Measured scan of single mutants.
Amino acid sequence: PDDEWKERLREAEEKNNWKLFEELARKAGVSEEKIEEWKRRWS
């Protein structure tokens, strides 16, 4: 299951679909801290 969400995150990233990325990350149990960090790195 871990690989599956990583794959989906990669797809979201490729499409630059931040909303989807964020949603998937939350569902995968990624901390808000980590998500914010990704946001900063991404923008």
Rank of each mutant, 00 (worst) to 15 (best):
R8I: 13
R8L: 14
L20S: 07
W38R: 03
R41A: 13
N16D: 09
D2I: 11
R8E: 07
L20G: 07
L24H: 03
P1C: 15
K19P: 14
K27C: 13
N16W: 10
W5V: 06
R41F: 14
W5F: 06
W42K: 02
E22W: 08
E14S: 12
K15Q: 12
A25N: 00
E13M: 15
I35N: 00
R10W: 08
D3I: 09
A25Q: 01
L24R: 04
D3V: 07
D2N: 11
A28P: 00
I35S: 00
K39H: 10
E4I: 13
E4N: 11
D3A: 12
R10D: 05
V30K: 01
E22A: 06
I35R: 00
D2H: 09
E36K: 06
L24N: 03
K39Y: 10
F21T: 01
E22G: 01
R40S: 12
E36N: 07
E7V: 10
G29A: 01
W5T: 06
K19W: 10
N16T: 05
E7G: 08
K34I: 14
E11I: 08
W5Q: 05
K39P: 00
D3N: 11
E37P: 00
E33H: 06
D3K: 09
K15V: 07
W18P: 01
R26E: 01
R8Y: 07
E32F: 03
S43E: 13
E13F: 15
E32A: 08
E32V: 04
E33V: 08
F21Y: 03
W18S: 01
W5C: 13
E11Y: 05
W18H: 02
D2Q: 09
K27H: 07
R8P: 05
S43D: 13
R26N: 01
D2E: 11
D2S: 12
E36F: 05
E36Y: 04
R10F: 07
E22Q: 03
R26L: 05
A12L: 09
G29Q: 02
D2P: 12
I35W: 02
E37G: 01
L20W: 14
E13C: 15
I35K: 00
E13R: 15
L9W: 13
K15M: 12
E33R: 05
R10S: 07
S31E: 03
S43L: 15
A28R: 06
E13Y: 15
L9A: 09
S43I: 14
R41D: 13
R41M: 15
E7I: 08
A12I: 07
E13K: 15
W38G: 01
P1F: 14
R40I: 09
A25R: 00
R10A: 08
E11K: 08
K34G: 02
E37A: 03
R10Y: 07
E23G: 02
W42A: 03
K27I: 11
R40M: 10
E23S: 05
L9D: 04
R41T: 08
A25L: 15
E23V: 04
I35P: 00
K15P: 03
A28E: 04
R8H: 08
E33Y: 05
L20D: 13
A28F: 11
G29Y: 00
S43M: 15
E37S: 02
V30M: 15
S43H: 15
K34H: 06
W5A: 05
L20F: 11
E33Q: 09
E33L: 05
I35H: 00
W5I: 08
P1D: 09
K19A: 14
W38T: 06
L9T: 04
R10Q: 09
E32P: 08
K34M: 15
E14R: 13
K6C: 15
R10L: 08
K27S: 11
W38A: 12
K15I: 07
E13I: 15
F21M: 04
K34L: 14
A25C: 08
L24Y: 07
K6T: 11
S43N: 12
L20Q: 10
E7S: 09
A12E: 04
D2M: 10
E14D: 10
S43W: 15
E7Q: 12
A28Y: 09
W42D: 01
D3Y: 10
R41W: 15
K19E: 14
A28L: 13
D3S: 11
R8V: 12
F21H: 01
R26I: 05
W18L: 04
E37L: 02
K27F: 07
N17P: 03
G29W: 00
E37Y: 04
P1A: 10
L9E: 04
E32Y: 04
E37K: 02
E32G: 03
K6R: 12
E37T: 01
K15C: 11
A25T: 01
W18D: 01
K39T: 02
P1L: 15
R26D: 00
S43P: 11
E4P: 08
E23F: 07
E23M: 07
R26Q: 03
A25E: 00
K27Q: 12
E13W: 15
A12K: 05
E36Q: 10
E13T: 13
K6P: 07
W42R: 02
N16E: 07
F21N: 00
L24T: 06
A25F: 05
K19R: 09
W18I: 04
N16R: 10
E11M: 10
K19L: 10
N16F: 12
D2R: 08
E14V: 12
D3W: 12
L20P: 04
A28M: 12
S43G: 14
N17I: 12
E36A: 08
R40H: 11
R10M: 11
A25P: 00
E37Q: 03
A12V: 07
R40K: 14
S43T: 11
A28I: 08
K15A: 12
K34V: 14
E23R: 02
W18K: 01
D2T: 12
K19N: 11
F21V: 05
A12G: 04
A28H: 07
K39C: 07
D3L: 11
S31Q: 03
V30I: 14
E23P: 00
W38H: 09
R10E: 06
K34T: 14
R40F: 07
R41Y: 14
W5R: 04
E32T: 04
K15R: 08
E4F: 14
V30G: 00
W5K: 04
R10N: 06
L9V: 05
A12N: 04
W38S: 03
W42N: 02
P1G: 11
G29D: 01
E23K: 05
L9R: 06
E37F: 02
K34Y: 07
G29R: 01
L24W: 15
L20M: 11
W38N: 02
E22K: 01
E37N: 02
R10V: 06
R40A: 12
E4D: 12
K27V: 05
W5H: 05
K39A: 04
E22T: 04
R41G: 08
A12Q: 05
K27W: 07
F21A: 02
N16C: 15
W42Y: 08
E4G: 10
N17Q: 08
E14I: 13
L24E: 07
E32K: 06
R8G: 07
S43K: 13
K19G: 09
E22P: 00
K15Y: 05
S31W: 01
E33D: 10
L20H: 12
D3P: 11
A12F: 11
S43R: 13
D2W: 13
W5D: 05
L24G: 02
D2A: 08
E4K: 11
K39M: 06
V30A: 03
L20I: 10
E13A: 15
R26V: 02
E13H: 15
E7R: 10
R40P: 05
D2V: 10
L20E: 14
R10I: 09
E4A: 11
W42L: 06
K6V: 13
E37I: 02
S31M: 02
G29H: 02
K39W: 09
W18Q: 01
E14G: 08
K15F: 07
P1I: 14
S43Q: 15
I35M: 02
L24M: 09
K6L: 14
K19Y: 11
K39E: 06
S43C: 12
K39Q: 03
S31K: 03
E22R: 01
E7A: 11
D3M: 10
V30S: 01
R8N: 06
K6I: 14
N17M: 09
K19F: 10
N16Q: 09
F21E: 00
K34C: 15
N17W: 14
R40L: 09
W5Y: 05
A12T: 04
K6A: 13
E33C: 09
K34R: 10
A12M: 11
E23Q: 07
I35D: 00
E36P: 00
N17A: 07
V30R: 00
K39R: 12
A25S: 02
L9P: 02
I35F: 02
N16M: 08
E32M: 06
R8Q: 10
E36R: 08
E32R: 06
A25Y: 02
S31F: 01
R41N: 14
E11R: 07
K15W: 05
D2F: 15
W38M: 13
W5P: 04
L24Q: 05
I35L: 09
V30P: 00
A25W: 06
S43F: 15
E23L: 05
R8A: 14
